[in-house]
């Protein structure tokens, strides 16, 4: 039977993923993601937040004219006014200016530590899952130990003892977070190891590096991407909590978390909500949009998981 390539009929209904030239996995994922309204709204909000954070110096100079740490000495804990739209903090610094700057450190810490702990976790998980045996045993017992720490509790101990700083905060987050991707990768590898295509690759003489990078890891990507996304939200929450307690990013660098610690003062908490409400809402908005994105990604990457 001579097969001629059928001309695409413009009136023919197209089914997702069934037409040959549309089966690229990445394209399917993108299409499903774009169709998820909540995820797209989340992505848009997050993009705006990232842009505002990146251009905070330009934006604040052009509109308000206050510097990040600039002190307006006659306006300490001032109420909102044209001069200070969100009032000032206990040092007389402009709240709105610091609010716009506040996302920079939070987002940078979250994105940076996700990259580091993911790399570390994937590396450890690959080694454990690929080699198995006693290597796997030792690494997984280490994972068991680290996963027994309540995150905030131990992060607080590490940062407080080593001194509050961005690098110690990232160290604590990375130290406590890598077991999750390590477990994911290892589990995925163990189940893939028995599959025919891996057997075939091994028979064809594929070495360990190529095996992991080309054949094993790509198949473990979906849960990793979802975990990384949701963990950005988790880290932002953790950073905010630690900074709020005074053990995260220290003054004068503003983050939404340490701006909230102004509310530790009872008078501020009770009578000056404009000081602590906006940073809290910013954290909420950021985490909410990332959670929407993560949820959309999960549905898009693996429709079987869709509930």
């Amino acid at each position: 039977m001579a097969l001629t390539h059928p001309k695409p009929n413009p009136n023919q209904p197209q089914f997702d993923g069934l037409v040959p030239h549309e089966t690229s996995y990445a394209r399917m994922v993108l299409r499903r993601f774009v169709r998820n309204r909540a995820a797209m709204i989340g992505a848009a909000i997050l993009l705006i937040l990232i842009l505002v954070s990146l251009f905070a110096p330009v934006i604040t100079q052009a509109t308000l004219g206050w510097g990040r740490d600039e002190i307006d000495i006659r306006y300490i804990r001032a109420a909102p006014s044209a001069r200070h739209p969100l009032g000032t903090d206990s040092a007389g610094r402009d709240n709105l200016t610091r609010l716009l700057y506040g996302g920079r450190v939070s987002l940078a810490i979250a994105l940076g530590s996700v990259v580091v702990y993911m790399t570390l976790g994937i590396l450890v998980g690959s080694v454990a899952g690929y080699f198995g045996g006693w290597v796997d045993n030792v690494l997984m017992r280490l994972v068991d130990v680290i996963q027994s720490f309540p995150f905030l509790m131990f992060a607080l101990t590490i940062v407080a003892i080593r001194g509050p700083s961005v690098s110690n905060l990232v160290f604590a987050i990375v130290f406590l977070s890598w077991p999750v991707p390590a477990r994911l990768v290892r589990g995925e590898f163990l189940s893939l190891r028995e599959r025919d295509f891996i057997e075939a690759a091994r028979a064809a003489g594929v070495g360990p590096f190529r095996m992991v990078l080309r054949h094993l890891l790509p198949n473990a990507m979906a849960p990793l991407i979802v975990n990384a996304t949701l963990e950005v939200a988790g880290i932002i929450l953790a950073e905010a909590g630690l900074s709020y307690l005074g053990f995260g990013v220290s003054q004068p660098v503003p983050t939404w978390g340490n701006m909230l610690s102004e509310a530790n003062n009872m008078a501020v908490l009770q009578t000056k909500p404009w000081t602590w409400l906006p940073p809290g809402l910013m954290i909420f908005l950021t985490v909410l949009s990332i959670n929407f994105i993560g949820d959309g990604l999960r549905d898009a990457l693996d429709p079987r998981l869709k509930q």
Binding site: A233, L237, A240, L260, A263, F284, F292
Partner: peptide, 15 residues
């Protein structure tokens, strides 16, 4: 549920 997961507990406490 989404809002509950995204609200920092200490901010909820302050509110």
């Amino acid at each position: 549920a989404f809002m509950g997961i995204s609200l920092p507990s200490f901010f909820a406490a302050l509110l």
